[in-house]
Design a binder for these strands. Structure first.
Length: 808
RNA sequence: GCCGGCGUGGCGGAACUGGCAGACGCCCGGGACUUAAAAUCCCGUGGGUAGCGAUACCCGUACCGGUUCGAUUCCGGUCGCCGGCACCA
């Protein structure tokens, strides 16, 4: 009798061995000619709550993939680090009443211990922590480079403000008018801000998506977020004035139907256009609009607006169009002013209907003019009508040509617009990288000299947010007051800090050269390790972190710091693990499942496999503890099979060989297509088949068990190592090559073909694999002869697949 | 509102480019071993009708229709759920 599977002893043993001799050689360390493969996890922020089984899933997926690639003959770069600056870390510290640097450190220690339970092949020599001055030195360095290139600039304007987090937010951090972090309603606050000119990269960020092997969904989200549109800017002269108002439109084909104009209340001309009799109402409207939060503005069901009393002239046909103000026009998109074509735009239609403004149809719908229009006709399909010299043209064609026609007429020009806004980059919080800028009364904004970086985050008594729009750093006089690095005059430091995204936008570059004090990353190391081949993490960063990282990488490429302009070749988004009924795991809901007990009861290998077995890796899955019994039983059976086989020492039978090749083929194919859940079921299925084969002779041949063990190794590394050792090997199993299959060895001599009548299966016939069409059909018909009662109309034979007899 | 994705047993899910629907597992039921229990092993398990029975037939992949010898898979429509964007002119 063999020893039963003892996960505790086996796992403890291999942890120690791997600690002493890591299975994953560093690049070039073993002196072999191999390609590198950089498999990256989205690094965690070290929360005080620790890991739950959902966090595990992503790390297991990336480790399985890394180990598979290791066996496929690559050098694996698989690092881990800590995204430790930012609001979550700071809020946690405030709640616990300790300094963020202390809570961060203890959280890192705790989470690192938990992550090590996964037994992933992380290279801890590469570890980074965004709050380490030696790390954020380079975060600041990048900012200084951006400043020097004019990509970081100061601007005062009404930004998104979270009253709960007491800080400004980037556009990307506002979700449905609420703070992405805490869910509080976002208001507006006029604040001096540091901005990053990400809009300058809009076009490249958009077009380079084509290069990436990313989920279409994520590419689509980024495309929509960047929001490129083609159209024209058209100048409308103001009546009785030498001023003009420029509007942006994507539908210049409808210019003849523009019956009024609307300006955003924040438009620079808004107040001055008011005629004396409208002045009071206009000023009131502008004031009211300035008091509204984003949410208020969104939730207004009915359109509001006010007539300025002024008119503009439609430059195409000379028509007089009234100028209105309304907050449905956004000040910071396009020109902040629009021409309104109520017949062909839903919003303009609603506005025109409410305020009794004229509606002129300029595109025929179904070839005719609509009587009693009840809704706008928004499609660019149909013949132009009521459009002067444009009459008779096709709208879709005109839409494309009109910008150039307008340009020739000298009344406007073709242009493109983006929804993407510049990145609000400063935060009025303590726990972040200080922005390395000095405000000098003589020299203006001066960057902190590079040799003085890192500009350390000072110790501070009170690090709680002030809510005043100033960071807590502003209260530290001895830190704020400094000398101008250029002229030496008394100057003041910038007191805002960087957002959480600053460090995470480039950390993946630093892993590979994390101790370099001279450069962000050396050319040599960058060539050797970068860029990232596979990036694994949740979909929640589709437009935040992933867009920012692409922007940073492109900037670093432009200044010659790296020689690639996209950071992540392939992206995989794993689904979320939820509690029962799809409820997100959270401490407050009390549905958090900790991996700790499961590792103790079933072992790391079982939990790793179950994390994958719960469902397709890209989909969300509800956690159910009970299912882990299934994979645990499989491991026990596999162990028993391996140990019994070792004792029995049987010769391979043809069945065993055939099944072995089939297994290699099957498992590899499923793994390559990232169908990790079916890899696990495949293991179970083949194990059952081998157990059956072993019944007659007491075991399975050595080569088959060893092959099975190598296939299993990325998934359940401990048990695989132990079996490998039991089979007399003294080197780790991860020095092996991933097995390959032999097509001819898989072939069956006899195949089973379903026999159908009129598409319904009536029997299954067993024939030689070499069977001809005629033989197959004859054999099939013989088997179902008693059911062939009608006239045979047709006989279909798909080789090896199906026989279908059609009868009437 | 617009744009994506998805609907398969009691449950998680399988089915590669149209070819035996329900692999694999959980739960559940029956049996073996045991003084007993756990563990382990074996058998059964979509629904229905007929039969003591091996079995036979019918219905079944959200719903309605189409293409096809054949549809979970392709096409059109309906309903439901999930995700993204949300006055971007």
């Amino acid at each position: 009798m063999s020893v039963p599977y003892n996960h505790k002893a086996i796992e403890a043993k291999w942890r120690v061995k791997w600690e002493e001799n890591p299975v994953n050689p560093k690049v070039g360390e073993d002196g072999k000619e191999k390609e590198k493969y950089y498999c990256l996890d989205m690094f965690p922020y070290p929360s005080g709550n620790g890991l739950h089984v959902g966090h595990w899933r992503g790390y297991v997926i990336s480790d399985v993939w890394s180990r598979y690639k290791l066996l496929k003959g690559y050098y694996i770069i698989h690092p881990m680090g800590w995204d430790a600056f930012g609001l979550p870390a700071e809020n946690y510290a405030i709640k616990m009443g300790v300094h963020p640097s202390i809570s961060t450190e203890s959280n890192v220690t705790n989470i690192k211990r938990q992550i090590q339970d996964i037994a992933a092949i992380y290279d801890w020599d590469m570890e980074v922590n965004t709050t380490d001055p030696e790390f954020y030195k380079w975060t600041q360095w990048i900012f200084v480079q951006m400043f020097k290139k004019g990509l970081a600039y100061e601007k005062e304007f009404p930004i998104n403000w979270c009253p709960s987090c007491k800080t400004g937010l980037a556009n990307e951090e506002v979700v449905n008018g609420k703070c992405e972090r805490c869910g509080a309603e976002v208001t507006k606050k006029n604040l001096r801000q540091w901005m990053l000119r990400i809009t300058k990269y809009a076009d490249r960020l958009l077009s380079d998506l084509d290069k990436l092997d990313w989920p279409e969904k994520v590419k689509k989200m980024q495309t929509d977020w960047i929001g490129k549109s083609y159209g024209a800017e058209v100048d409308f002269p103001v009546e009785n004035s030498d001023q003009k108002i420029t509007v942006y439109t994507t539908r210049p084909d409808t210019l003849h139907g523009a019956t009024f104009m609307v300006l955003a209340p924040e438009h620079t001309l808004a107040a001055s256009l008011a005629t004396p009799e409208n002045k009071e109402a206009v000023e009131q409207y502008i004031f009211d609009a300035s008091m509204k939060s984003n949410v208020d503005r969104l939730q207004d069901k009915e359109k509001t607006g006010v007539f300025t009393g002024s008119y503009c002239i439609n430059p195409l046909n000379g028509a007089k169009v009234p100028v209105w103000l309304s907050d449905y026009v956004l000040a910071d998109y396009g020109t902040g002013a629009i021409m309104c074509v109520p017949a062909h735009d839903d919003r303009d239609f609603e506005f025109a209907t409410k305020f009794g403004l004229p509606i002129i149809q300029v595109i025929a719908k179904d070839g005719k003019e609509i009587e009693n229009m009840t809704e706008a006709y928004t499609a660019a399909v149909g013949t132009m009508i009521n459009s002067g010299e444009w009459n008779g043209m096709e709208s879709s064609v005109l839409k494309k040509e009109a910008p150039h026609m307008i340009e020739k007429m000298g009344i406007g020009h073709a242009t493109v617009n983006y929804k993407l806004r510049d990145w609000v980059f400063s935060r009025q919080r303590y726990w972040g990288e200080p922005i390395p800028i000095v405000h000098c009364p003589k020299c203006g904004n001066v960057p902190v000299p590079e040799e003085e970086l890192p500009l350390r985050l000072p110790e501070v008594e009170s690090y709680q947010p002030t809510g005043t729009g100033e960071s807590p750093l502003a209260a530290i006089d001895e830190w704020v007051n400094c000398k101008c690095p250029v002229c030496g005059a008394a100057a003041k430091r910038e007191t805002n800090t960087m957002p959480q995204w600053a460090g995470s936008s480039w950390y993946f570059l630093r892993y590979v050269d994390n101790k370099n004090s001279e450069e962000l990353v050396s050319k040599e190391k960058a060539d050797k390790y970068l860029p990232v081949d596979m990036y694994i993490g949740g979909v929640e960063h589709a437009v935040l972190h992933l867009l920012y990282s692409r922007f940073y990488t492109k900037f670093l490429y432009d200044i010659g710091a790296v020689d690639f302009d996209e950071p992540f070749h392939k992206l995989f988004n794993q689904g979320m693990i939820t509690g029962k009924n799809g409820i997100k795991m959270s401490k407050s809901k009390g549905n958090v499942v900790s991996p700790d007990d499961l590792v103790n009861d079933y072992g790391c290998d079982s939990l790793r496999m179950y994390e994958l077995f719960v469902g397709p890796p890209e989909l969300d899955a509800e956690w159910d503890d009970r299912g882990i019994d299934g994979v645990n039983r499989f491991l026990k059976r596999f162990w028993k099979l391996a140990m019994d086989s070792k004792e029995a020492a049987v010769e391979a039978t043809p069945d065993m060989v055939k099944l072995r090749h089939k297994m290699v083929f099957d498992i590899t194919q499923r793994l390559e297509s990232f169908s990790l859940n079916t890899v696990i079921s495949g293991f179970m299925e083949y194990n059952n088949k081998f157990v059956n084969l072993a019944k007659t002779c007491g075991g399975i041949d050595k080569e088959t068990i060893e092959t099975f063990t190598i296939l299993l190794a990325p998934f359940a590394p401990h048990i695989s190592e132990e079996v490998w050792e039991e089979y007399g090997h003294n080197k780790t199993i991860f020095t092996q090559q991933w097995p390959s299959h032999d097509e001819s060895a898989m072939q069956e001599d006899q195949i089973e073909i379903p026999v159908q009548i009129n598409g319904k299966t009536r029997a299954v016939v067993s024939v030689a694999a070499s069977v001809t069409k005629e033989e197959a059909i004859a054999a099939g018909k013989e088997l179902i002869a008693d059911k062939l009662t009608g006239t045979i109309v047709k006989e279909i034979y798909v080789p090896g697949k199906i026989i279908n007899i059609v009868q009437k």
